[in-house]
Design a protein around this nucleic acid. Structure first.
Lengths: 117, 117
DNA sequence: ATTATATTTCAATAATCGTTGAAATATGAA
DNA sequence: TTCATATTTCAACGATTATTGAAATATAAT
Protein backbone atom coordinates (compact mmCIF):
# COMPACT_ATOMS: atom_id res chain seq x y z
CA UNK A 1 0.00 0.00 0.00
CA UNK A 2 1.26 3.45 -0.97
CA UNK A 3 1.28 6.26 1.53
CA UNK A 4 -1.33 8.33 -0.32
CA UNK A 5 -3.73 5.45 -0.20
CA UNK A 6 -3.11 4.95 3.50
CA UNK A 7 -3.79 8.63 4.21
CA UNK A 8 -6.99 8.43 2.18
CA UNK A 9 -8.14 5.33 4.04
CA UNK A 10 -7.34 6.84 7.43
CA UNK A 11 -9.13 10.07 6.51
CA UNK A 12 -12.13 8.05 5.41
CA UNK A 13 -12.25 6.32 8.79
CA UNK A 14 -11.48 9.43 10.83
CA UNK A 15 -15.03 10.65 11.07
CA UNK A 16 -17.75 9.74 13.50
CA UNK A 17 -20.46 8.61 11.12
CA UNK A 18 -18.08 6.94 8.68
CA UNK A 19 -16.36 4.97 11.39
CA UNK A 20 -19.78 3.76 12.50
CA UNK A 21 -20.68 2.83 8.94
CA UNK A 22 -17.44 0.99 8.32
CA UNK A 23 -17.55 -0.95 11.57
CA UNK A 24 -21.13 -1.90 10.92
CA UNK A 25 -20.09 -3.27 7.53
CA UNK A 26 -17.09 -5.05 9.05
CA UNK A 27 -19.45 -6.72 11.45
CA UNK A 28 -21.93 -7.49 8.72
CA UNK A 29 -19.28 -9.46 6.87
CA UNK A 30 -18.53 -10.01 3.16
CA UNK A 31 -22.17 -10.04 2.06
CA UNK A 32 -22.62 -6.45 3.18
CA UNK A 33 -25.94 -4.74 3.72
CA UNK A 34 -28.25 -2.33 1.86
CA UNK A 35 -27.75 1.42 2.26
CA UNK A 36 -31.21 1.77 3.70
CA UNK A 37 -30.53 -0.61 6.55
CA UNK A 38 -27.30 1.20 7.35
CA UNK A 39 -29.18 4.51 7.38
CA UNK A 40 -31.77 3.05 9.69
CA UNK A 41 -29.27 1.39 12.01
CA UNK A 42 -27.25 4.58 12.42
CA UNK A 43 -29.95 7.23 12.09
CA UNK A 44 -28.35 9.00 9.12
CA UNK A 45 -30.08 10.96 6.36
CA UNK A 46 -29.87 9.09 3.06
CA UNK A 47 -27.99 11.84 1.23
CA UNK A 48 -25.53 12.24 4.09
CA UNK A 49 -24.96 8.51 3.98
CA UNK A 50 -24.27 8.59 0.25
CA UNK A 51 -21.67 11.27 0.88
CA UNK A 52 -19.92 9.07 3.43
CA UNK A 53 -20.17 5.92 1.31
CA UNK A 54 -18.45 7.82 -1.49
CA UNK A 55 -15.53 8.64 0.76
CA UNK A 56 -15.22 5.06 1.95
CA UNK A 57 -15.46 3.83 -1.60
CA UNK A 58 -12.87 6.29 -2.92
CA UNK A 59 -10.55 4.99 -0.24
CA UNK A 60 -11.18 1.42 -1.35
CA UNK A 61 -12.66 0.47 2.00
CA UNK A 62 -16.05 -0.61 0.72
CA UNK A 63 -17.64 -1.99 -2.44
CA UNK A 64 -21.15 -1.51 -3.82
CA UNK A 65 -23.43 -3.59 -5.95
CA UNK A 66 -27.00 -3.03 -6.91
CA UNK A 67 -29.77 -5.42 -5.90
CA UNK A 68 -33.15 -4.29 -7.19
CA UNK A 69 -33.50 -0.72 -5.99
CA UNK A 70 -31.18 -1.30 -3.06
CA UNK A 71 -27.48 -0.62 -3.10
CA UNK A 72 -25.56 -3.20 -1.11
CA UNK A 73 -22.39 -1.96 0.53
CA UNK A 74 -19.72 -4.28 1.91
CA UNK A 75 -16.40 -3.78 3.67
CA UNK A 76 -13.22 -4.59 1.75
CA UNK A 77 -11.23 -6.60 4.24
CA UNK A 78 -8.16 -6.73 2.02
CA UNK A 79 -7.79 -2.95 2.11
CA UNK A 80 -8.23 -2.84 5.84
CA UNK A 81 -5.50 -5.42 6.28
CA UNK A 82 -3.14 -3.53 4.01
CA UNK A 83 -3.76 -0.44 6.06
CA UNK A 84 -3.04 -2.16 9.36
CA UNK A 85 0.11 -3.63 7.87
CA UNK A 86 1.22 -0.24 6.59
CA UNK A 87 0.96 1.31 10.04
CA UNK A 88 3.09 -1.31 11.71
CA UNK A 89 5.57 -1.84 8.90
CA UNK A 90 9.20 -2.10 9.89
CA UNK A 91 8.39 -1.35 13.51
CA UNK A 92 11.28 -0.96 15.92
CA UNK A 93 13.85 -1.14 13.18
CA UNK A 94 12.57 -4.49 12.03
CA UNK A 95 12.71 -6.11 15.45
CA UNK A 96 9.08 -6.38 16.58
CA UNK A 97 10.07 -7.96 19.86
CA UNK A 98 11.77 -4.67 20.76
CA UNK A 99 8.40 -2.90 20.63
CA UNK A 100 7.57 -4.13 24.11
CA UNK A 101 4.38 -6.10 24.75
CA UNK A 102 2.96 -4.87 21.47
CA UNK A 103 0.78 -7.49 19.89
CA UNK A 104 0.55 -6.19 16.35
CA UNK A 105 3.82 -5.13 14.83
CA UNK A 106 4.87 -6.13 11.36
CA UNK A 107 8.58 -6.76 10.72
CA UNK A 108 10.39 -5.21 7.79
CA UNK A 109 9.86 -6.65 4.34
CA UNK A 110 12.90 -8.24 2.75
CA UNK A 111 15.81 -6.56 4.47
CA UNK A 112 15.88 -6.47 8.24
CA UNK A 113 17.48 -3.36 9.71
CA UNK A 114 20.37 -3.73 12.08
CA UNK A 115 19.54 -3.34 15.75
CA UNK A 116 21.86 -0.88 17.45
CA UNK A 117 23.46 -2.02 20.71
CA UNK B 1 -10.93 1.81 23.36
CA UNK B 2 -13.93 4.13 23.07
CA UNK B 3 -15.14 5.32 19.71
CA UNK B 4 -14.24 8.96 20.33
CA UNK B 5 -10.68 7.97 21.05
CA UNK B 6 -10.54 5.87 17.90
CA UNK B 7 -11.79 8.76 15.76
CA UNK B 8 -9.22 11.05 17.36
CA UNK B 9 -6.42 8.58 16.69
CA UNK B 10 -7.49 8.02 13.09
CA UNK B 11 -7.78 11.77 12.51
CA UNK B 12 -4.32 12.22 13.95
CA UNK B 13 -2.93 9.68 11.50
CA UNK B 14 -4.97 10.89 8.53
CA UNK B 15 -2.57 13.59 7.45
CA UNK B 16 0.46 13.34 5.26
CA UNK B 17 3.08 14.82 7.55
CA UNK B 18 1.68 13.23 10.69
CA UNK B 19 1.54 9.79 9.16
CA UNK B 20 5.20 10.23 8.22
CA UNK B 21 6.03 11.36 11.73
CA UNK B 22 4.19 8.50 13.37
CA UNK B 23 5.67 5.84 11.12
CA UNK B 24 9.12 7.24 11.67
CA UNK B 25 8.56 6.93 15.42
CA UNK B 26 7.13 3.43 15.05
CA UNK B 27 10.28 2.47 13.21
CA UNK B 28 12.48 4.24 15.73
CA UNK B 29 11.04 2.05 18.49
CA UNK B 30 10.30 2.65 22.17
CA UNK B 31 13.28 4.95 22.77
CA UNK B 32 11.89 7.52 20.35
CA UNK B 33 13.84 10.35 18.79
CA UNK B 34 14.31 14.09 19.31
CA UNK B 35 11.98 16.53 17.57
CA UNK B 36 14.91 18.06 15.73
CA UNK B 37 15.88 14.80 14.10
CA UNK B 38 12.29 14.19 13.05
CA UNK B 39 12.15 17.68 11.54
CA UNK B 40 15.37 17.04 9.68
CA UNK B 41 14.38 13.59 8.46
CA UNK B 42 11.04 14.80 7.10
CA UNK B 43 11.90 18.37 6.09
CA UNK B 44 9.29 20.01 8.31
CA UNK B 45 9.41 23.47 9.90
CA UNK B 46 9.84 23.20 13.68
CA UNK B 47 6.61 25.01 14.50
CA UNK B 48 4.65 22.92 12.03
CA UNK B 49 6.12 19.84 13.62
CA UNK B 50 5.07 20.96 17.09
CA UNK B 51 1.54 21.39 15.80
CA UNK B 52 1.51 17.83 14.50
CA UNK B 53 3.13 16.37 17.60
CA UNK B 54 0.37 17.98 19.65
CA UNK B 55 -2.28 16.21 17.62
CA UNK B 56 -0.52 12.87 17.92
CA UNK B 57 -0.08 13.42 21.62
CA UNK B 58 -3.70 14.43 22.20
CA UNK B 59 -4.69 11.21 20.48
CA UNK B 60 -2.41 9.24 22.80
CA UNK B 61 -0.29 8.01 19.92
CA UNK B 62 3.01 9.45 21.12
CA UNK B 63 4.72 10.44 24.36
CA UNK B 64 7.28 13.17 25.05
CA UNK B 65 10.05 13.60 27.53
CA UNK B 66 12.67 16.27 27.78
CA UNK B 67 16.36 15.49 27.42
CA UNK B 68 18.46 18.62 27.79
CA UNK B 69 17.03 21.06 25.30
CA UNK B 70 15.69 18.29 23.10
CA UNK B 71 12.21 16.89 23.29
CA UNK B 72 12.17 13.17 22.68
CA UNK B 73 9.04 11.82 21.06
CA UNK B 74 8.16 8.13 20.99
CA UNK B 75 5.28 6.08 19.57
CA UNK B 76 2.81 4.54 22.02
CA UNK B 77 2.45 1.03 20.73
CA UNK B 78 -0.31 0.17 23.17
CA UNK B 79 -2.60 2.82 21.68
CA UNK B 80 -1.86 1.70 18.16
CA UNK B 81 -2.77 -1.87 19.05
CA UNK B 82 -6.00 -0.78 20.68
CA UNK B 83 -6.87 1.12 17.55
CA UNK B 84 -6.19 -1.82 15.25
CA UNK B 85 -8.26 -4.02 17.54
CA UNK B 86 -11.10 -1.54 17.54
CA UNK B 87 -11.30 -1.54 13.75
CA UNK B 88 -11.53 -5.30 13.46
CA UNK B 89 -13.69 -5.92 16.52
CA UNK B 90 -16.50 -8.37 16.13
CA UNK B 91 -15.79 -8.78 12.44
CA UNK B 92 -18.16 -10.92 10.39
CA UNK B 93 -20.57 -11.33 13.28
CA UNK B 94 -17.89 -12.79 15.47
CA UNK B 95 -16.76 -15.40 12.96
CA UNK B 96 -13.41 -14.12 11.62
CA UNK B 97 -13.04 -17.09 9.31
CA UNK B 98 -16.10 -15.81 7.42
CA UNK B 99 -14.19 -12.65 6.49
CA UNK B 100 -12.45 -14.49 3.67
CA UNK B 101 -8.66 -14.56 3.46
CA UNK B 102 -8.50 -11.64 5.87
CA UNK B 103 -5.45 -11.89 8.06
CA UNK B 104 -6.32 -9.45 10.79
CA UNK B 105 -9.82 -9.77 12.16
CA UNK B 106 -10.58 -9.76 15.84
CA UNK B 107 -13.45 -11.92 17.09
CA UNK B 108 -16.14 -10.56 19.38
CA UNK B 109 -15.34 -10.10 23.03
CA UNK B 110 -17.27 -12.33 25.42
CA UNK B 111 -20.39 -13.24 23.54
CA UNK B 112 -20.06 -14.63 20.05
CA UNK B 113 -22.86 -13.71 17.69
CA UNK B 114 -24.80 -16.42 15.97
CA UNK B 115 -23.86 -17.04 12.36
CA UNK B 116 -26.89 -17.01 10.11
CA UNK B 117 -27.26 -19.97 7.75
C1' DA C 1 25.51 37.76 31.82
C1' DT C 2 25.51 36.88 27.00
C1' DT C 3 24.89 34.03 23.14
C1' DA C 4 23.38 29.87 20.75
C1' DT C 5 20.38 25.93 20.28
C1' DA C 6 15.89 23.47 20.53
C1' DT C 7 11.33 23.88 20.65
C1' DT C 8 6.86 26.10 21.49
C1' DT C 9 3.25 29.77 21.23
C1' DC C 10 0.24 32.85 18.85
C1' DA C 11 -2.33 35.20 15.16
C1' DA C 12 -3.66 35.14 10.40
C1' DT C 13 -4.86 33.08 6.16
C1' DA C 14 -6.39 29.66 2.69
C1' DA C 15 -8.28 25.25 1.99
C1' DT C 16 -11.12 21.32 3.17
C1' DC C 17 -15.08 19.01 5.33
C1' DG C 18 -19.91 17.62 7.03
C1' DT C 19 -24.69 18.67 7.00
C1' DT C 20 -28.91 20.46 5.10
C1' DG C 21 -32.64 20.84 1.80
C1' DA C 22 -34.62 20.43 -2.67
C1' DA C 23 -34.63 18.07 -6.79
C1' DA C 24 -33.15 14.23 -9.78
C1' DT C 25 -32.55 9.31 -11.12
C1' DA C 26 -33.41 4.35 -11.09
C1' DT C 27 -36.01 0.33 -10.08
C1' DG C 28 -40.24 -2.13 -9.02
C1' DA C 29 -45.33 -2.54 -8.28
C1' DA C 30 -50.19 -1.59 -9.64
C1' DT D 1 -48.42 4.74 -17.60
C1' DT D 2 -48.61 6.14 -12.89
C1' DC D 3 -47.16 5.78 -8.26
C1' DA D 4 -44.00 4.37 -4.56
C1' DT D 5 -39.45 3.16 -2.91
C1' DA D 6 -34.33 3.52 -2.68
C1' DT D 7 -30.65 6.18 -3.44
C1' DT D 8 -27.94 9.88 -5.56
C1' DT D 9 -26.84 14.70 -7.11
C1' DC D 10 -26.16 19.55 -6.43
C1' DA D 11 -25.57 24.09 -4.24
C1' DA D 12 -24.94 26.54 0.01
C1' DC D 13 -23.50 27.31 4.64
C1' DG D 14 -20.77 27.05 8.92
C1' DA D 15 -17.01 24.73 11.05
C1' DT D 16 -12.50 22.72 11.24
C1' DT D 17 -7.67 22.24 9.67
C1' DA D 18 -2.74 22.96 7.97
C1' DT D 19 0.71 26.23 7.05
C1' DT D 20 3.18 30.60 7.53
C1' DG D 21 5.87 34.02 9.96
C1' DA D 22 7.26 36.47 14.01
C1' DA D 23 8.06 36.28 18.69
C1' DA D 24 8.56 33.73 23.09
C1' DT D 25 10.46 30.20 26.30
C1' DA D 26 13.77 26.85 28.08
C1' DT D 27 18.19 24.79 28.38
C1' DA D 28 23.18 24.78 27.59
C1' DA D 29 27.70 26.78 26.47
C1' DT D 30 31.13 30.69 26.88
Amino acid sequence: MKKDHAVAALAALAQDSRLDVFRLLVQAGPDGMPAGRVAEALGLAPNTLTFHFDRLRDAGLVTVRRDGRSMIYAARFATMNELLGFLTENCCQGAPEACGPALVCKPARGKRAKVSV
